[in-house]
Computed example of a mutant assay.
Amino acid sequence: MTDWRVYLVTQASLSGDRTTPEIVEAAIEGGVDVVQLREKDVNARERYEMGREVREHTREAGVPLIVNDRVDLALALEADGVHLGDEDLPVAVARELLGEDAIIGRSVSFVDDAREAETAGADYLGVGAIFPTGSKDDIDDAEYAIGIDRVAAIVDAVDIPVVGIGGVTAENADSVIDAGAAGVAVITEITNADDPEAATGRLIDAVSKGQ
């Protein structure tokens, strides 16, 4: 998991005229290390059907598939794990349901929450939003961006890998890695790119420069 350089978070509404499976297939060709099925704009049935196709691509490529929020969908899709936020099931409950081998991530923005998530058994942390981003309604203003210094403080406070998310691009990814993050997670930098495969490659190059 410490080798997760680039982490794709899917969102069909931010993918232009491409489907999520098409984006995932292109990102895999570009070398993406892990895929999170997000898709907050569709219902559970649609997300499941989409996830089945995505799962075929990730399984064939040996790329881990993480499901955002929904432990039930993670189970149904035989995903590798789940990523949880403040309003989702607690990490310990997800662990009990998914088993010891499941990968469980937790979104945090503060040091105390990071320590709590680690103690609860999270395998990695998604930390952000680092930079201003338009992919979430509640963090699209600069005042909500936590910045690089907070990332560094969280990295120093825990022993599990940190993945930086929120406004990350090929131009600033190296700074996230310089702050101690193991990798970066993106939505639009890949999903909205003219060439998602090439965009993934650029991010990998940027992360490598920061290591």
Rank of each mutant, 00 (worst) to 15 (best):
A114H: 12
V82S: 09
I160N: 09
A153N: 11
V168D: 00
A117R: 10
Y144W: 07
V91Y: 07
E143K: 13
D88H: 13
D113T: 05
D80T: 04
L84I: 06
V155A: 11
A122Y: 12
D141E: 14
T169F: 01
T169M: 01
T119M: 12
P161I: 04
D80C: 03
A145D: 10
V162E: 01
I154G: 10
A152L: 03
G85R: 09
A145N: 11
D123R: 01
S175T: 12
G167I: 04
E100R: 11
E116T: 14
L125S: 07
T169W: 01
A153Y: 00
S135C: 09
A142L: 03
E87K: 14
F131N: 04
D174V: 01
A170I: 00
T119K: 15
V151N: 05
A142I: 04
P132M: 02
A114D: 07
E87T: 14
D149R: 13
D86I: 08
G81N: 12
V108D: 05
D138A: 13
D156H: 12
V91S: 05
E143S: 15
E87A: 15
E171G: 01
E171W: 01
G99N: 07
G128I: 04
G121Q: 10
E171L: 02
S109G: 15
G128S: 11
E116Q: 14
D141W: 02
F131W: 13
A152R: 14
A170V: 00
V108F: 10
S175D: 15
A114E: 08
I148E: 15
T119G: 08
V82Q: 11
G121T: 05
V111N: 02
I146D: 12
E143P: 00
P161S: 07
I165Y: 01
T119S: 14
T119A: 15
A92M: 00
A122C: 11
V168W: 00
G126S: 08
V82M: 08
I146F: 14
V151W: 02
G147D: 09
D86G: 06
G128T: 06
D113P: 05
A142R: 13
S135D: 03
L125E: 03
I154M: 08
G147I: 10
E116N: 12
E116S: 15
I154N: 05
G167P: 13
D174W: 03
G121I: 07
D137H: 12
G166C: 06
V176L: 15
A79P: 05
G134W: 03
A79S: 10
D113C: 04
V158C: 06
F110H: 13
E100T: 09
G164T: 10
G121S: 11
F131Q: 02
V155S: 03
R150Y: 07
D86N: 10
S107Q: 08
A79D: 05
